[in-house]
Amino acid sequence: MDTSTAGWLVIAMALAAANLPFFNDKVFAVVGTKWQGKPLFVRLLEMTVLYFVVGAVGFALETQIGARFPQTWEFYAISACLFIVLGFPGFIVRYLRKRHG
């Protein structure tokens, strides 16, 4: 896999993972909950776990392509903010869209 394909794959995975907690009421789209709908704190916790999963896949792809570059705190701060921004469409659909009926 070349560098460009791996980069786009990680971006697509991040987009899907950031929106996954908002588009279903099951935890990680697998486990049902006892609540009528998932509370916001569960969705945010799920987003945090998925951020680390996508990061691990990204590191694995980077290692497979070649040498893994060392990352500092700035990389993690920016990637976490980007992950939150990628999850914004799901947040809008879940909490801010007006429901009819």
Score class of each variant (00 low, 15 high):
Met47Gln: 14
Ile92His: 01
Ala14Glu: 02
Leu15Asp: 01
Met13Arg: 00
Phe83His: 01
Ala17Asp: 10
Val93Phe: 12
Phe41Tyr: 14
Leu50Glu: 04
Thr72Lys: 11
Phe91Met: 15
Ala67Asn: 06
Arg68Gln: 06
Asp2Met: 04
Ile92Val: 15
Thr72Arg: 07
Tyr76His: 14
Ala17Leu: 11
Met13Val: 07
Ile78Asn: 02
Phe22Asn: 11
Ala77Thr: 09
Arg97Met: 15
Trp35Gly: 13
Val93Cys: 07
Arg97Val: 15
Ala29Thr: 10
Phe88Asp: 01
Tyr76Thr: 03
Arg68Glu: 11
Phe23Leu: 12
Lys26Gly: 12
Thr63Pro: 04
Val10Lys: 01
Thr72Ser: 13
Trp8Ile: 04
Ile65Pro: 00
Pro89Leu: 02
Ile92Ala: 08
Val10Gly: 02
Gly58Ser: 10
Trp8Asn: 08
Leu96Met: 14
Ala12Met: 10
Ala14Ser: 12
Ala12Thr: 02
Pro70Asp: 08
Asp25Thr: 05
Gly90Tyr: 02
Val54Gln: 03
Gly55Pro: 01
Tyr95Leu: 12
Lys34Ala: 15
Gln36Arg: 10
Arg68Cys: 10
Phe69Met: 14
Leu96Lys: 09
Met47Cys: 15
Thr5Asp: 07
Lys38Pro: 05
Cys81Pro: 06
Lys38Asp: 06
Leu9Pro: 01
Phe59Glu: 09
Thr33Asp: 09
Thr48Pro: 08
Ser79Trp: 00
Ala77Asp: 03
Val57Ile: 11
Ile65Ala: 10
Leu40Arg: 07
Lys34Asn: 15
Ala56Ser: 06
Ala29Trp: 11
Gly87Val: 04
Gly87Cys: 05
Cys81Arg: 03
Lys38Arg: 09
Ala67Thr: 12
Thr48Trp: 09
Thr3Leu: 14
Val49Gly: 05
Met13His: 02
Gly7Asn: 05
Tyr95Val: 09
Gly58His: 01
